[in-house]
Nucleic acid binder design. Structure first.
Lengths: 200, 200
DNA sequence: TTGCCGCGTGGCACCGGGTGTCATTAGCCT
DNA sequence: AGGCTAATGACACCCGGTGCCACGCGGCAA
């Protein structure tokens, strides 16, 4: 496969990153993450393998988009949360809001998340990304409950809410027509109420 | 570094696996997972690199011991659980019991878990191992609640209880003299009660 | 215009994890 | 003794990731 546009050295590239992401997503979705080499992705995007690794630290990073901005937004939402609201409620609300995408972005999100939650190598890698999210949440809970970020409860809230969110994403992926927000709210409702669906 | 015992080809090896695990654990703990090559581990254990990968599918697998047996025991505990007990309680109890180690095994467990939860590459890899655990738990919850393994609630229980268990392990690692069971019970108590520690 | 410089780029060599293949060797069975 | 099985080790290879260097474009100053 050859390049659509030949890259010009010395030029700021202007949209190269997005083009590489598209090529990566397409190839990974089509043939599977492990079956595609970084050489092929780079080639499809019209850059060299070496340059690919200047845009993305690892092969896996090419599917995450601007995840750092996502985490930053979550952090802002938590910082702006009403202190009168319960801590756990604020965390869940922030998760719901940060994942409130406009309709046009949903297909891309689906593609990303399908890869991340389906491909073993990407699922493993996700743990490293989600660790950043956990730290943000744990820090917030610690601050609100006058504890330390490394205490059991802040970490527990971070780990379990994130697990719930991930599970909601899985459910969303399985049902093409469902709304992500509904799954998230249902998952958090179960979690915060101690799984009432299991009472019998 | 040279071998303690030179391996004899054709002989069943008898304890080679355990020797490799020890060498790996020692080296990883001493110098860090990524800083040690599989060549060095193999050499320290007196085998070739190629043979190392016959005992362990990946470098990371050398720190997990017989994890499949661990998962199998959890599955048995769940199968033998009292059907009169609440589902969630059975899952938590099984987690506590499967992690009820005799004192002599605790230092080894600490070493393993410290590596797994501290080294980024191992933390990422852990996701793949824990996915097996999640499936076992989700299957049990689905069976008890007349649902499917892929439904939201079974997956949710599996993901959140496992997240709670992992968090308990982290707390245990931070406190040298604490009991793992105490952390697990406390984490599960918080989880199943909807985090009462956060009420204010 | 000429010459210099910064920077994105690509080529290349290298490292390390992981795999397929093949020859070697020992124990065992007949 | 001869043949079979199974564990091993050597070798070549693939691929992700990195360090290094040379190239070429645009911009800037003289």
């Amino acid at each position: 496969m050859t390049a659509i546009e030949t890259a010009v050295p010395g030029v700021p590239a202007e949209g190269t990153r997005a083009r590489v992401e598209r090529a990566a997503l397409d190839l990974f979705t089509l043939r599977g993450f492990e079956q595609v080499t970084t050489d092929e992705v780079a080639d499809a995007a019209g850059i060299s393998r070496r340059t690919f690794f200047r845009y993305f630290a690892t092969k896996a990073d090419a599917v995450w988009g601007d995840f750092a901005a996502h985490v930053a937004r979550l952090e802002e939402l938590l910082a702006d949360a009403d202190p009168a609201q319960p801590v756990l409620g604020s965390v869940c609300a922030a998760y719901v809001e940060v994942n409130d995408y406009v309709a046009a972005e949903l297909p891309l999100l689906r593609e990303r998340m399908r890869l991340i939650l389906t491909e073993p190598a990407l699922l493993a890698h996700s743990q490293l990304r989600y660790a950043e999210v956990d730290r943000v949440v744990a820090r917030y809970v610690a601050a609100r409950s006058a504890g330390r970020e490394t205490d059991l409860v802040p970490r527990l809230v971070a780990a379990t809410t994130r697990a719930a969110a991930t599970t909601a994403f899985q459910a969303w992926l399985r049902d093409e027509r469902s709304a992500l927000g509904d799954h998230l709210r249902q998952a958090f409702a179960e979690l915060t109420a101690g799984f009432p669906a299991l009472l019998r």
